[in-house]
Amino acid sequence: MYNFGVTSTSQGAVIRNQQWDVRRLPRAEGKDFLVTGGNAGIGYFVAEQLAGTGATVILGSRDAAKAEAAMASIRSRVPGARVRHVRLDLADLSSLKSTVDELDRLDAVVCNAGVLLEEPGRRMARDGHELMFATNHLGHFALIGKLMPLLSGGRIVTTGSFTAKSARLDLGDLQSARDYRPKDTYARSKLAQMLCGFELDRRLRAAGSTTASVVNHPGGALDSLTPSRPPFHVRTTGRLLRGLPAGLLLQGKEAGAWPAVRAVLDPSVQGGQLWGPRVLGLRGEPRLETVRNLLADKELAGRVWDASVDLTGLDPLESRA
């Protein structure tokens, strides 16, 4: 399947035969990968890099025009790229079935799409849930459930956030009705998403499934350090110069995509793992991280899972093929 050698240890398969090279990815012809939010930001670069492996990459996006622009950009950089678009609105749970109906099979889904609102007013999604929690977490939670029959033996890759590591969850106020601060609410939504990514893998293993759930985060990924991809992202010289000091610790979104891409392609990656940038978890090539603190809290993850089932009316494992 992949042109990459592995050896096995008591902890499982790990790469020993060669180093992972973000510029020379293993081939993946015949594979189908769905990237939510693949039309912009980190999701775009995940899609562009995966397209370079020969796989078919499906961009899940609400906006068809933005998806077309992203696909045109990918094709201009990856000759013969196999890319297509499906309409996906994670903030509207009732629309997810029509999205899944457009898909036949998948080898991996990258749950990348997310929204970070900056205005102080709390906004609601169509289903009555707080918009960031609905889009970043609940929409992906429900989507995974509907995709599960298409993913037998595949990978579910959840892209969280470095900021989630310092977030705290109030199980009585998961949607920040009493304590709404945009950046904190965003971090909580990503923490919930990551916790459920780990919990999903535990439940898949308990059910004897060969599908794996892997969690990653992009570290600190800034627009000012991101290479241009006209028309949706143009990095000016001035913008680059202003961002250079931050480049000592942070990186652009092209590099921010590397952990997710490795989680999809690396045959040694295992379910339940966390992948992030090598340098302080903020920048650099992807490496395996230790799952610790709240991310390792199995009881909390189980309670967030149960709350998510209640809020979406769907348990992803009930849809397992």
Rank of each mutant, 00 (worst) to 15 (best):
E29S: 12
Q19V: 07
R126L: 15
G38F: 13
D104F: 01
A125M: 08
G54V: 07
L88Y: 04
L59W: 01
N17W: 06
S76V: 04
V115T: 04
I58Y: 01
I15A: 15
A55M: 11
S95I: 08
G37C: 13
G43N: 08
A69W: 00
A70C: 13
L50T: 10
A51N: 07
G114N: 01
G41A: 07
D104C: 03
M124F: 10
V110F: 09
W20K: 00
G60C: 06
R24H: 10
E29F: 14
V35G: 03
S95D: 12
G121P: 01
G30D: 05
E29P: 05
L103R: 09
I74A: 09
V86N: 07
E119T: 08
R24K: 09
E119P: 01
G80E: 01
F45W: 15
R23H: 15
L131P: 00
D127N: 11
A70Y: 13
R16L: 13
A91N: 04
L103E: 11
L96P: 09
D63F: 02
Q49N: 12
A65L: 10
A47D: 03
T36F: 02
Q19F: 10
I58M: 04
T53P: 07
L93T: 07
L96C: 08
H129P: 06
T36I: 03
G80M: 03
Y44N: 03
V109L: 03
A47F: 07
L50I: 14
L34Y: 03
S76D: 08
M124V: 15
A81L: 08
E118S: 15
I15D: 11
V115L: 14
R77N: 14
A55V: 13
N39E: 14
V22K: 02
S73I: 01
A72Y: 01
Q49H: 14
V78S: 02
C111S: 06
N112D: 13
T53Y: 06
E130Y: 00
A72T: 13
E130M: 01
R82K: 15
A81S: 06
E102V: 00
